[in-house]
Amino acid sequence: MIVSIIIPAFNETATIAATLRVLQPLREHGHEVIVVDGGSRDGTPRVAAPFADRVLVAPRGRARQMNAGAAVATGAVLWFLHADTLAPADATEQIALARARGYGWGRFDVRLTGRKRLLRVVAWAMNRRSCLSGIATGDQGLFVNRLLFEALGGYPDQPLMEDVELSRRLKRRGRPACLPGPLVTSARRWERDGVWSTIVLMWRLRLAYFCGADARTLQRRYERGESPPRRQNRL
C-alpha cells in the first residue's frame, strides 16, 4: 500500500522543513510526499524541494491545492496533512490497519503545541467531537482511499470548510476511522488570537456553515477573526 502525503502550503518556511523531515522515513519505505504551494512569497517551494518527491504550484486555496496534489498522486491512499503538523512515525501503519478493518477513510487524534493547559482540553474536545460527529477537520490529517476520493469529485471548490464538506459526503459512504495518532499540530492561531476567542470564532463559523451560510462570506470573517453576525446563523 502506497500512501501519497499531500501538503498544501502558503508562506510556510517557518514550519514546513520540520514537517517534511519527520516524513523522510516514510519516503524511504516507498510512500510519496507532494507539496502544493499556493504562490508563497517566502521561498517555501525552495525549502520543501529537498524533502519532497514533487513540489507543485497551484492557485491559492487549500481545496484547490489539495485537489492538484491528488491529481498527480500515485498512491492508493491520499493523506492530506497541514504544513505545520508533525506526523507519528507509525502513521502509515495506523492507516493500513484501518483499511484492513474495512475503513475507506478516517482521521487522526491531534495534540496541540504550547504550554497552556487549556490547549490540552481543546485538543481533547476536537478529538471527541470528531469521533462522535464523523466530521474531520484539516488539522486531523484526513486520509481517504483514492478511488473513493475520485468518486466524490475530490474537495469541493470553496475557500473554507472544505474539509467539513468532504467529511459530510464521505460519511454517506461509511463512518471514519478515528486513529490515535497523535498528530502534533501548531497552536499558533490559538496563541496569537487567544484560546477562547478562537474557540468561539470557530464554533460560530461552523454553526453558520451547517445552517447554510456561504463559505466565501465565512472565509472573509475568518481572515478578519470575526464571528458571523446572528442573522447569518439563520441562513
Score class of each variant (00 low, 15 high):
Trp105Cys: 00
Glu93Val: 08
Ala98Ser: 07
Ala98His: 02
Asp90His: 12
Ala91Asn: 06
Met126Gln: 09
Pro88Phe: 13
Asp90Cys: 03
Arg101Glu: 12
Arg117Glu: 15
Ala98Pro: 01
Ala123Val: 02
Gln94Gly: 07
Pro88Lys: 07
Met126Lys: 03
Leu97Thr: 09
Glu93Thr: 08
Gly114Lys: 06
Arg101Val: 01
Gln94Pro: 05
Val121Asn: 09
Thr92Pro: 04
Arg107Trp: 14
Ala125Glu: 04
Phe108Pro: 04
Ile95Cys: 02
Leu112Tyr: 10
Lys116Ala: 15
Met126Ala: 06
Arg115Cys: 10
Gly102Ile: 04
Phe108Glu: 02
Arg117Thr: 13
Val121Gln: 15
Asp90Gln: 07
Leu97Val: 13
Leu118Val: 10
Asn127Met: 01
Ala123Phe: 11
Arg115Gln: 15
Asp109His: 12
Val110Ile: 14
Ala89Thr: 07
Gly114Gln: 03
Gly106Lys: 04
Gly102Asn: 10
Glu93His: 08
Arg111Met: 10
Asp109Met: 02
Gly104Ser: 04
Lys116Phe: 14
Asp90Arg: 10
Trp105Ile: 01
Gly114Asp: 07
Leu119Thr: 01
Lys116Met: 14
Arg117Ile: 07
Pro88Asp: 07
Arg117Gly: 12
Arg120Ser: 11
Thr113Gln: 10
Gly102Asp: 07
Pro88Cys: 07
Gly114Thr: 05
Gly106Val: 02
Leu119Met: 09
Gly114Trp: 11
Arg120Pro: 03
Leu118Ser: 14
Asn127Gln: 03
Thr113Cys: 11
Ala96Arg: 05
Gln94Leu: 13
Ala123Pro: 03
Leu112Cys: 07
Arg99Thr: 03
Gly106Phe: 11
Arg117Gln: 14
Thr113Phe: 13
Arg99Gln: 08
Lys116Ser: 14
Tyr103Thr: 00
Val110Ala: 07
Gly102Pro: 09
Asp109Asn: 10
Ala123Ser: 03
Leu112Phe: 13
Arg111Phe: 05
Glu93Cys: 12
Ala123Trp: 05
Gly104Pro: 10
Gly114Arg: 06
Trp105Phe: 05
Ala123Asp: 02
Leu97Gln: 12
Ala125Tyr: 13
Ala96Leu: 05
Val121Phe: 15
Ala89Lys: 07
Pro88Ser: 01
Gly114His: 08
Gly114Asn: 08
Asn127Thr: 01
Asp90Glu: 12
Ala91Phe: 09
Ala123Tyr: 10
Thr113Lys: 09
Trp124Cys: 03
Val122Leu: 11
Arg107Tyr: 14
Thr113His: 10
Gly106Arg: 06
Val121Met: 14
Gln94Tyr: 04
Ala123Met: 08
Ala100Arg: 09
Ala98Tyr: 03
Lys116Gly: 12
Val110Tyr: 02
Pro88Met: 10
Tyr103Cys: 05
Gly114Phe: 11
Trp105Arg: 00
Arg107Gln: 07
Ala125Met: 11
Ala123Leu: 06
Arg111Trp: 04
Phe108Tyr: 11
Gly102Phe: 13
Gly106His: 08
Glu93Leu: 10
Gly102Val: 05
